[in-house]
Amino acid sequence: MSEATAAAFCDGCGRPAAECAGCRWEYDPPHFCSQCGVRMAVNVSPNGWKARCKTHGEITRG
């Protein structure tokens, strides 16, 4: 899954994109899937992070 995919949901709070233009702080990893708005399992490591949506797969950084 790519972060560049058009976001239907805010990845900071899980609301539809029409209701939240993006509230995620620059130092927070995404916590909600931008495609379905479901909370993701996130693991942060010293030099990166990994977020997994059970439907839409994994996003990694670093």
Binding site: E26, Y27, V42, V44, P46, W49
Partner: peptide
């Protein structure tokens, strides 16, 4: 250095 437990730090 780097990230914290659940959120990110600035770049190393």
């Amino acid at each position: 250095i780097g990230n914290y437990l659940t959120y990110l730090g600035r770049s190393p």
